[in-house]
Nucleic acid binder design. Structure first.
Lengths: 344, 344
DNA sequence: CAGATCGGGATAACCGATTCACCATTAAGG
DNA sequence: CCTTAATGGTGAATCGGTTATCCCGATCTG
């Protein structure tokens, strides 16, 4: 069923059908009705491929993700999908499938850059998407890429060094500050921190936020209270062990993700202490496990769906040539559960 | 950069460039080299939109998911993406976003059928995908749909009633039997079962498998040992409570997913008993929480990525007109952890 | 009432590839 | 040496929409 057949059935020209369907020209009500009736009866749907070719615009957003299995990705796609569908855009998904390599600074290697560039190139040049949303775990420096492509590129979850880029991220710095303030309000004066991969953007931002909040609250967080982790459970366990062996061990531990927080909780328990009785523990991410470890893990929830929505909105605004904020930072919320208590 | 420009730069006709790029005709090595050099130097990539229009085939697979946030979906997409990319197919994702409605027999309502049909129609008629993979949680009856569309439709994770359909699923029946046999081998004679939503395909299959294995093992599983759940934590807790209150309570509980198993474990503990000392508990799904509850939850892992791969392979085979198995059942594996022990 | 204006609709070019039909050249065969 | 076949390449139609341009009749204007 093509527009030509519709035209013949309605006794008009292809052009008229097109004008009716797109509302791009005044058409006599009578003719319009005739066309619409034929369309409805036949169940005709425009071939988007033909439209795309002619208009050289596909109403499609390319979404590149490092790995769809990675925890934050699915909710972000969920948000993108919601806004995209509402605005008549469809989504082409490109999954780089590099979950296993995500924790080894792989994102700084040439192989990674090539993979990502190929994916973006493919989407833009072959698939002809109108915009690309890149969902990445780590901050990155892709200066120049955005000019090369000449179509909107939006970074979601991660940020870039170039202020000309469009990034939708979350308030890792600020909410980490809130975590520290909240612990301070509950009487904790010595707070241990288990970081993510040192040098990684998210870890650094969270650390800066935590340190500046500690400073504001008048807490001294010495270097021995800051233990490097690598986002994985064992590093949380080991980091907490080191913290507990300090001369004057902390009464609260802020682990920069839930996996490490779970490790920290186990280390505390294995040291014969109780959570939160002796040591409070707070995580980050609100992964599923946070509601199932005992005690339930207090943590921080990022508005992942919101990041997806905002990224899609930004992409679509840029496609339409509208202005958009270059950096959007969505608020995260602390989720208080049972692993944090007043200091005894 | 179009094929016409490449042709001019190489001093040949558009047709020749096309033949070189597709290898669809013998071309003198010299001319071929000239064309390929121009292509390489210019970074030219074929406009897939134009190719699609002309060939009326898009090398695209439409993937419809009930909700991308739903636990099994992301790994399945991962598998689809892997095979699709390897075969030169791209993926258009259509997310129905109905997670909140997934547990209320929503999939049997007319609204649901309309949503699903609209999504498939859109992908086939507007986006012109070559095949659709539908990732659904529950078995369904869509007899007739497959004929209507005339393009391959593959159901992943769920199955349908129509043997003409193509379905890639897992061995819910058999592996549930293995679970029972394994418990029996460890001396458990009274085994409680907490089902999923009664009447739902996955729950019924697992139940049948469990019962027939119990029969084989010579265990009597009376109706009071089968407690209905609804896939959620509280129903697991309540189901286990009912089991423990029986005159002769079971020494092992098989919950049909990890959420309910976690609930069951808590009910056992709250009853002053120990897991697995007094009561063994085994779940299903191997969600993240299974590795974090204490004791670590023994469970069953479905090969979700494999389902995705197989679904993509089936779809592509059908696109190419090759034969494919109508029903593929992938093997799941039991993951023994610490929540199951020999009966004392 | 003649000429200008306007509005609805048709015609045809176009987007960028693919591919059929055809042509020119060369090779093979009798 | 002429016919036939094979080979490598070109021209043009085509996929299904969109849209610039044109045309025709009706309405308006002075």
């Amino acid at each position: 069923m093509t527009i030509r057949e519709i035209a013949e059935l309605a006794g008009v020209s292809k052009a008229t059908v097109s004008y009716v369907l797109n509302g791009t020209k005044n058409i006599t009500p009578e003719v319009k009705q005739r066309v619409l009736r034929v369309v409805a009866e036949s169940g005709y749907k425009k071939n988007r491929i033909a439209t795309s070719l002619r208009k050289s615009s596909t109403s499609t957003i390319g979404v590149v993700v490092e790995d769809i299995i990675s925890f934050p990705v699915a909710p972000i796609i969920h948000g993108i999908s919601e806004r995209a569908e509402a605005e008549g855009y469809q989504i082409i998904l490109s999954d780089l499938r590099i979950l296993d390599k995500l924790y080894n600074n792989y994102h700084q290697t040439p192989q990674y850059r090539k993979k990502m560039n190929d994916a973006v190139d493919y989407l833009l040049q072959a698939a002809r998407v109108d915009a690309v949303i890149f969902v990445g775990m780590y901050d990155r420096d892709f200066t120049g890429l955005i000019d090369k492509i000449g179509k909107p590129l939006v970074f979601a979850y991660c940020t870039t060094r170039d202020p000309a880029d469009y990034c939708v991220s979350y308030d890792g710095h600020d909410v980490s500050g809130e975590v520290i303030h909240s612990l301070a309000r509950q009487g904790h004066e010595r707070i241990g921190v288990i970081t993510g991969l040192p040098g990684s953007g998210p870890s650094e931002a969270r650390l800066r936020g935590a340190l500046s909040a500690a400073h504001e609250a008048g807490l001294a967080v010495g270097p021995d209270c800051i233990q490097p982790g690598d986002w994985e459970y064992p590093s949380g366990y080991a980091g907490a062990q080191r913290l507990l062996r300090l001369e004057n061990p902390p009464t609260a531990i802020f682990a920069m993700n839930d996996l490490m927080a779970a490790g920290a909780m186990d280390a505390v328990k294995d040291a014969g202490l109780s959570v939160p009785g002796d040591v409070s523990v707070i995580g980050f991410d609100d992964r599923e496990l946070a509601s199932f470890v005992r005690p339930n893990l207090s943590t921080v929830r990022i508005d992942l769906v919101g990041i997806g929505r905002a990224a899609a909105e930004t992409a679509i605004a840029r496609i339409r040539g509208e202005e958009a904020q270059h950096l959007q930072v969505l608020r995260s919320v602390m989720i208080p559960r049972d692993s944090v208590a007043e200091r005894k």
